[in-house]
Simulated scan of single mutants.
Amino acid sequence: MSGISHINKLLVTGSNGWVGRAACASIENRGWSVRAAVRSTSVADLPDDVVQVGSVNNQTHWAPALSGIHTVLHCAARVHVMTDTAQDPLSEFRKVNVDGTLNLARQASAAGVKRYIFMSSVKVNGESTRSGHSFTEADTANPQDPYAISKFEAEQGLRQIAAVTGMEVVIIRPPLVYGPGVKANFAALMHAVQRGWPLPLGAAHNQRSLVALDNLVDFILTCATHPSAANQTFLVSDGQDLSTTELVRGMARAANVPTRLLPIPVWALQTAGQWLGQGAAVQR
């Protein structure tokens, strides 16, 4: 895209997280000025300018972190929890992802911040699409779990704040992110492939969008500077959708190990998952 504008100082929240840390490093590599907001300062490999803000909620005091800031990149969040033990998961997600996000946005606007970039999730769009179709930014939101609902509610609140205050808001909904240091489901799948375990995924001919960490960070920083990104919602991916079978084969090639895929029909996996109480895991 053309029309890149100059940026002054950028605040990154959740900068000790996987995406936030990568964003800070890329910002510094570009010669920009960055400030890292963290819950605890006992974290290595962060920019020299670090501000400890404590827990992110509706009581967080952001003034020291926001002083002199032009753009906020808000990565801090209560992330998707596979086995949530909270009695009211939605309430817990809202404390951080909704209340914390909107509290920061209100204080950012009052402090003169020009642009607020919110890291949301493609789960706001829903859990799946019809065969041969992809999610788009124009789709009606269809969040189906507490994490996705909290992200959608935060998006709605941010748009209201932008309309009232004039602060520019950019919403990014990434799909599954992969790259060095990836954790959770993707890391578990890589571990299984590298160990040579037989996997019942040889007949999973779905299509799934992914985005590499470096590509996501590059897109984020484009959104930090490009005038046309203001008040837009973006879905982002590598542009090469893969089936689960193709993904496993690619992992095996990268690890230089044989691929051990069993062609178990998807309906059989889904049925077994329901019997074992692991239907959601099979779907993921």
Rank of each mutant, 00 (worst) to 15 (best):
M1W: 09
S2W: 10
S2F: 11
G3P: 00
I7M: 10
N8Y: 02
K9D: 00
K9I: 04
K9G: 03
L10I: 15
V12R: 13
G14E: 09
S15M: 08
N16V: 03
N16G: 08
G17I: 09
V19Y: 06
G20D: 10
G20R: 06
R21Y: 14
A22H: 04
A25C: 00
N29T: 12
A36F: 06
A36M: 08
S40W: 13
A44P: 00
D45Y: 11
D45H: 13
D48H: 03
D49Q: 13
V51G: 07
V56K: 08
V56P: 02
T60V: 06
P64Y: 06
A65S: 07
L66Q: 09
I69F: 07
R78T: 01
D84W: 04
T85V: 04
P89S: 07
L90P: 02
E92S: 09
D99P: 08
G100N: 00
T101G: 08
R106W: 13
Q107D: 14
A108P: 06
A108V: 07
S109V: 01
A110K: 12
V113K: 04
K114I: 00
R115C: 02
I117C: 07
K123P: 01
K123N: 07
S131W: 12
F135M: 10
N142R: 12
P143M: 09
D145K: 15
Q156K: 14
Q156S: 14
G157I: 07
R159P: 03
T165W: 05
E168A: 15
G181I: 14
V182D: 07
N185Y: 11
M190Y: 04
W197R: 15
W197T: 12
P198W: 13
P198M: 09
P200H: 15
G202C: 08
Q207G: 04
R208L: 11
R208P: 06
L210I: 04
V211D: 00
L216I: 01
F219Q: 04
L221P: 03
T222S: 11
A224V: 05
Q232N: 12
L235D: 05
L235A: 04
V236T: 09
L242C: 07
E246K: 15
E246D: 13
R253L: 15
V266T: 12
A268G: 04
Q274S: 10
L276K: 14
Q278L: 10
R284D: 04
R284P: 07
